[in-house]
């Protein structure tokens, strides 16, 4: 019934069909999601792009069981989002790194591990592994305020990776960082994705960021929040930063822009 939903297969990690969600606010109801259907395959890097209020964050939060859709079905690894959370299916990265100032970087990464009841040795081992994964070896003993914003965000990614979730959900993780740091982190994130083969859901406001990172780009528009286009990226998996000057990159970026325009996203 929708071209975004392919044939169900073993590789479908996240499957959304006809999701509906309305928030009651003082200004009246806000239709955050309407008829949103999407399949995400194992190993996909899916970006959600669109203006504020298009439901991209809400969709991500539904996957993480932080919101419950009022209508439609949503499965993560074939389970309900709630069950998926209990089976540690995903790690979530917010826009703010949100590291605890009273814990060292290593202590922060241990937080989910402590809550999930990993043994001490296992905790140490995992902290070491993920610190290496995000290029923060040697910073485990530092406190968050001793690190730059970009490093803090890398630490928060490490924290999300620590318990081996298959899915990484990222809500504008680099939104608060400057462009230079952002480029660097985008490059590192791609390298991390290539190494780990995680499935990544990535919310962003930035067209270049979405095109550079993703295998699929989901263009959304507001009022009501819906999907207007899903773009399969023709770019190769290896992506040096200067791929952004290539013809193929510009074409994808153009199509994203068109999709945003079609959704009247430039009206306000």
């Amino acid at each position: 019934m929708n071209e975004n939903v392919r044939n169900p297969s073993e590789d479908t990690v996240i499957r959304a069909e006809n999701l509906d969600l309305t928030f009651e606010t003082t200004d009246g109801p806000v239709h955050a999601l309407k008829g949103v259907s999407l399949d995400i395959q194992r190993g996909d890097f899916v970006s959600f792009i669109g203006p504020s209020g298009c439901g991209k964050t809400t969709f991500l939060r539904c996957i993480a069981a932080l919101e419950t859709p009022a209508g439609g079905t949503l499965t993560v690894n074939g389970m309900t989002p709630e069950q998926a959370r209990k089976s540690r299916a995903y790690g979530y990265v917010f826009q703010a790194a949100g590291l605890y100032p009273w814990r060292t970087i290593a202590g922060n990464i241990k937080l989910p591990l402590e809550i999930m009841g990993f043994s001490r040795d296992e905790q140490e081992q995992r902290v070491k592994n993920v610190l290496q994964l995000v290029d923060l070896e040697g910073f485990g003993g530092k406190y968050p305020w001793q690190l730059s914003g970009g490093m803090q965000q890398r630490a928060s990614i490490a924290r999300a990776l620590a318990f081996d979730a298959e899915i990484l959900l990222m809500d504008e993780p680099f939104g608060a960082l400057d462009e230079i740091v952002r480029d660097h982190l985008n490059e590192q994130l791609l390298a991390l994705w290539a190494r780990t083969g995680k499935t990544i859901g990535f919310v962003t406001h930035s067209i270049p960021e979405a095109v550079y990172l993703s295998t699929r780009i989901v263009v959304m528009s507001p009022r009501p929040g819906r999907i207007t286009d899903v773009i399969e990226s023709p770019l190769p998996k290896e992506r040096p930063l200067d791929i952004r000057d290539s013809q193929a990159f510009l074409e994808v970026a153009h199509r994203v822009r068109e999709g945003l325009r079609a959704g009247h996203s430039y009206d306000d």
Partner: peptide, 13 residues
């Protein structure tokens, strides 16, 4: 903040 509490929720805390 809400993000901090949401983060703990995602750990099923």
């Amino acid at each position: 903040g809400t993000e901090q509490l949401d983060l703990l929720k995602t750990y099923n805390a």
